[in-house]
């Protein structure tokens, strides 16, 4: 029997007075496209950071592909790809130089890096510096950098924020293709249409807890809502956040 891609149990994390994560448990199956939804300050990012191994929880356990991410586990890091919310690029390097640098960290040859650039449609922008790329191009580059070593498990933190509709649709195609290749994808997003289109299952979070987990269509049916957006608003309320 194969283990789940991600098993998270009873995660808690407190920052000073704020209980950022308050008993989160999740299971993501292999090959699944999983969305974590929630308003600002719901604890999505902290949950993701703990799962990736960037932060240690106060309580709870994390298993990625059957292994613990703590302490830092280089063998596990080779099998996962992470795209960080802000585009984490080396200053003043071109797109090709960025992806080749990341590739070399995983022992991946330059040809494979160039091929990845082609996959995300950036071959023409290969010689462009990081600060001259458009928002969509930068997002595609950072996803390419996260995928260059062919990971089994991919984390994407708000990959389409700030993109125009064309760029978003293009990126969706790319993300679907990544998932179709058999990779497990975990994504956080504010866009319900995005989650509805892409995700096999979503977890709706608020106040550091998971409120509901299920396939988007199931949640819509269960709560008698018109769309996932209505589900989201029913679960998390309408007042402003942060």
């Amino acid at each position: 029997m194969t283990t789940a891609a991600i098993t998270v149990e009873g995660l808690r994390k407190r920052y000073g007075d704020v209980q950022a994560v308050d008993g989160v448990s999740l299971t993501v199956e292999r090959g699944e496209f999983y969305g974590i939804l929630g308003p600002n300050g719901a604890g999505k990012t902290t949950t993701l950071e703990i799962t990736e191994g960037l932060r240690r929880p106060d309580e709870g356990t994390v298993r990625l592909l059957g292994e613990s991410p703590f302490p830092r586990n280089p063998e596990l890091l080779r099998r996962m790809g992470v795209q960080l919310q802000a585009s984490a690029f080396f200053e003043r390097l071109t797109a090709r130089e960025q992806i080749r640098t990341f590739a070399s960290l995983y022992g991946v040859p330059a040809e494979r890096a160039d091929a990845m650039l082609e996959t995300v449609g950036l071959t023409e922008k290969a010689g462009t510096r990081e600060n001259k790329l458009s928002g969509g191009q930068a997002q595609r580059l950072s996803i390419a950098c996260a995928l260059v070593h062919d990971p089994e498990l991919v984390f994407l933190d708000e990959p389409t924020t700030g993109l125009d509709p064309q760029a978003r649709r293009n990126l969706w195609d790319l993300l679907r293709a990544i998932n179709d290749e058999g990779r497990t994808v975990v994504l956080t997003t504010h866009y319900m249409d995005e989650a509805e289109t892409l995700c096999d299952r979503v977890a709706v979070m608020d106040h550091g807890r998971v409120l509901r987990v299920g396939a988007p269509s199931e949640l819509v049916g269960e709560l008698g809502a018109a769309s996932l957006e209505d589900v989201f608003l029913q679960l998390t309320g309408r007042e402003y956040r942060q």
Binding site: E75, M80, S87, A88, F90, Y106
Partner: peptide, 11 residues
């Protein structure tokens, strides 16, 4: 620019 975190997540 979060490169430190990105490097932490690379082997």
């Amino acid at each position: 620019k979060r490169i430190l975190r990105r490097l932490w997540l690379a082997p």
